[in-house]
């Protein structure tokens, strides 16, 4: 294989991984924008979406199981918010974060129990896993599909936030929680909607991620979750385009490092990047500067 097509292949893989991170990162950045909460359970919702697919596709055809997976993932995300975050709305921020860690612990343990701790084979989704030839590079269809799908979803989401009523409410709540409440915005509805969107995108991300990954394990959500979070911080937390760009940059860089022969450091790189960003520009690429009042 000549070097140009090798580079192209690595780049394609990187962009595809970045797209998957982007879909997860949006969930983090939206929740953080509204609740100021690092939703540690988000990576585990992504993992659970993988397991839903494993068990549902065993009994149903693909065209039913995919919508069912997305529906279940959304339901799980909203349930987690209702049970674990809503009662703590007036509590200190640390309590909600601890609750999120608790949910993550619970979901991982539940998945371990249900599967007996064995990795479950992910079903092959027809069509998207096929090999295709793109500009002389052999790759799978899902690799090409991921960035396209990601961008389409992001554009849809940005339009939703910019032009619809619920989008306006979301922007208002993320600007100022209490004032928005006083202006008659149904805070709980807005927050639920945030979790619906975030979980839906995590579900889509999980379908794309696992179709190239042979098995699902209970702890698999942790790493993509953390990386997506780093992407969200890198792009400026609260900013959706920022999260997407951050995710693509991380996906590509990570793949370059892997292909140079340092797979050990591809995870560490993400965190080095995070710390550099936090030290040099804590608000990220597109974040708004927050001033602290005494």
């Amino acid at each position: 294989m000549d070097s140009v097509s090798y580079i192209l292949q690595q780049l394609l893989t990187g962009i595809s991984v970045g797209g998957q991170y982007a879909l997860i990162a949006i969930g983090y950045t939206m929740v953080y924008g509204i609740l100021r909460l690092i939703n540690f359970a988000h990576g585990d919702i992504f993992m659970m979406a993988g397991f839903f697919m494993v068990y549902l596709s065993a009994t149903m055809p693909v065209y039913i199981s995919i919508p069912a997976v997305l529906l279940l993932t959304v339901a799980l995300g909203v349930l987690v918010e209702r049970v674990a975050y809503k009662p703590l709305r007036s509590a200190p921020r640390m309590s909600i974060m601890i609750s999120a860690i608790g949910v993550s612990y619970l979901l991982q343990n539940f998945a371990t129990y249900y599967t007996g701790g064995l990795p479950q084979k992910y079903p092959t989704i027809p069509w998207i896993g096929d090999n295709v030839n793109f500009a002389g590079v052999a790759t799978s269809r899902v690799t090409l599909l991921t960035p396209v799908l990601t961008l389409a979803l992001v554009i849809g989401l940005v339009a939703l936030i910019r032009y619809t009523k619920i989008g306006m409410a979301m922007r208002a709540v993320s600007k100022d929680f209490e004032t928005a409440q006083l202006m008659g915005i149904n805070i709980n509805g807005v927050i639920s909607m945030t979790f619906v969107i975030g979980s839906f995108l995590a579900g889509v991300g999980s379908l794309l991620f696992f179709s190239k990954y042979p098995t699902v394990t209970p702890t698999i959500g942790a790493m993509p979750g953390l990386k997506a979070f780093v992407a969200a911080v890198f792009g400026g937390i609260g900013s959706i385009p920022g999260a997407v760009i951050g995710a693509f940059i991380i996906g590509i860089c990570e793949n370059i490092i892997k292909s140079m022969g340092y797979p050990t450091f591809s995870d560490a790189f993400t965190f080095v990047l995070l710390i550099l960003v936090l030290v040099v520009r804590p608000t990220g690429l597109f974040g708004e500067k927050a001033t602290e009042k005494v």
């Binding site: 100021r36 909460l37 690092i38 921020r93 640390m94 974060m97 953390l226 979070f229 780093v230 911080v233 993400t270 965190f271 995070l274 710390i275 936090l278 804590p282």
Partner: peptide, 10 residues
């Protein structure tokens, strides 16, 4: 606060 948490985790 939460940035510190994620940076130390990193």
């Amino acid at each position: 606060s939460d940035y510190l948490a994620i940076a130390t985790l990193g």
